[in-house]
Structure formats: C-alpha cells, structure tokens
C-alpha cells in the first residue's frame, strides 16, 4: 500500500462510490470525508450514480428464497436502535449511507411524511432537522419551534407511534404520526398552494355520531401537533376557513385521512 498525499485522497471519491477501495484506503478516505466539506455531497452524488447501475441489474429472486428469508425474519430479533446507536457509526458501511456525515441543508420542508413506526431514532432526526435550518429567525420563532419540536419528539417517542399518509391525485398529501395511547398526533401537509392571507387551513377530528372537533390551524410549512384525541376518532379532515378558524367546518374538506391504521377508530 502506498502513502497518500492529501490531494490524492480526494480523487478516491469515485472508486469509493464504486466500492473499489481496499480496506486500508477505504478507512483513510472515510477519515478524510469527515474533515472535507465538499466531499460528502460529491460522494453521495457518485453513490447515487452507482445505484443506477445496481438497479439495471435487477432480476427475479428465486421463489424459495422468499420463504427462507421470511421464516428467518419471524425468528430473528431486530437490533435495538436507541437514539445514540442510530447515530453512531455502524461497522463497514460508508458514512454517507449510514448518515454519519451531515446532510446537505437545502430542504426547508421537514420530511415528516414517512411513517416512523418506532420513534426513538426518528425523534432525534426530526428534532435535528427542525433545528437545522433556523438561521435568520427571531428568538420567539425559535422558541416556538423548540416547543413544537419537543411535542413532536414526545409523540414520536410513544411506543405505539404509527404513521400513515394520504395522497390525492395531484400529489398533495397529508401525513400523520400518531400515538393512540398518548392521544396525540403530528400532522403535516405537503404540496398545497399558499392561501390568500385571509384564509387558513384548519384540522378537524372526525368522530362517529359527533360534531367535528377543531384540532388547530396550520401555519406555514410546519407540522401541527394535536393532542387529546380519543381512540374513537375515525379520521382527520382539513378545510379552508376564514382567518382565525371556525367553530365548525364551513367548507368541504380538501383532504381527509382515516386513522384506523394508526391505532384509532377502535
């Protein structure tokens, strides 16, 4: 193995993305990655290219393999991924895959639409992303977001936290992470146009044989944390209401989402 000058290390990004480094070099390069600002984005892009190569090799797996894997899954315990472990470097896999490297901070929207079935690792991520992009905000805004982040983390941390999502034909979606035991939920909207300044989107809890109950108003781009949900709740609905909200919905829902899959409606 030869010695590397620093400038040489950088040129290993492509071989690294192709898994074409020897173990020694791989370790050196990963060490370099941690110190190099521009590398993670570059390595990620190259790794995505490599994944295109992977896709193109797809072939049907042998039928017998399915039963073997599923049988193994039924009897194999999962790793517990407590918050710290999820962030620690796991053996062998590249940092950009496991997320040791910081993500590029280009997205303003918080990616809450994926179902977090367990929450410990997810909570850390959500809180981190809430705090990640706050430059130029006032102290009040920051405090409000911190409070909200804590509430979100609380929902996510519930052992029975489950997630679901509904999408309409135009790609707009509503995402929910809810805990029936806590009676709380984090609700996010995505893909909706801005409303005129005198209109607001309001979230409603729909229950059988009862009036819809307001769960609050959506702000810009931020999730809404709803609490005090009873388990008889069957769905959530969003309507457009005059600024300040309404006691009862005055328009047709723009989106509605059943809560059965997240443990409600029992």
């Amino acid at each position: 193995m030869s010695l590397f000058r620093r400038e040489n290390l950088h040129s290993l990004a492509a071989p690294y993305a192709l898994d074409a480094l020897e173990p020694d070099e791989r370790r050196r390069f990963e060490k370099h990655l941690k110190k190099c600002d521009s590398c993670p984005a570059e390595v990620r892009a190259l790794a995505e290219d490599a994944v295109r190569l992977a896709w193109s090799a797809a072939a049907p797996a042998p039928a017998a393999m399915r039963e073997r894997v599923l049988a193994a899954v039924r009897t194999t315990p999962q790793e517990n991924a407590p918050r710290e472990a999820a962030r620690a470097r796991p053996p062998q896999l590249p940092p950009h895959v496991w997320g040791v490297q910081p993500p590029p901070r280009e997205r303003r929207r918080i990616p809450l639409f994926v179902p977090f079935a367990t929450a410990t690792a997810a909570a850390a991520l959500v809180v981190a992303s809430l705090f990640a992009v706050q430059a130029g905000q006032t102290e009040d805004q920051l405090n409000a977001e911190r409070t909200q982040a804590r509430e979100i983390a609380h929902v996510l941390a519930a052992p029975d936290a489950r997630a679901t999502r509904g999408q309409d034909t135009e790609g707009r979606s509503i995402g929910v992470i809810a805990s029936a035991s806590e009676g709380s939920a984090v609700v996010t909207l995505s893909g909706y146009d801005d409303l005129p300044s005198d209109r607001v989107r309001q979230l409603w809890l729909m229950r059988p044989d009862a009036q819809p109950r307001s769960l609050g108003l959506f702000g810009d781009d931020t999730p809404l944390v709803a609490s005090g949900l009873d388990t008889s709740a069957t769905s959530l609905a969003v309507t457009v209401e005059p600024d300040g909200g309404s006691p009862q919905p005055t328009t047709q829902p723009v989106v509605q989402l059943a809560l059965k899959s997240v443990g409600f409606g029992e």
Binding site: A72, T76, Q78, E79, N80, A81, V97, W98, G99
Partner: peptide
Amino acid sequence: LWRSAGRFDPGRG
C-alpha cells in the same frame, strides 16, 4: 435489512 432497518436515516438518501 430486517435486523438493522432502524439505522436507515431518511434524511440522508
């Protein structure tokens, strides 16, 4: 995948 799905971090890819 089954065992270590918890390590997947959607913020990173």
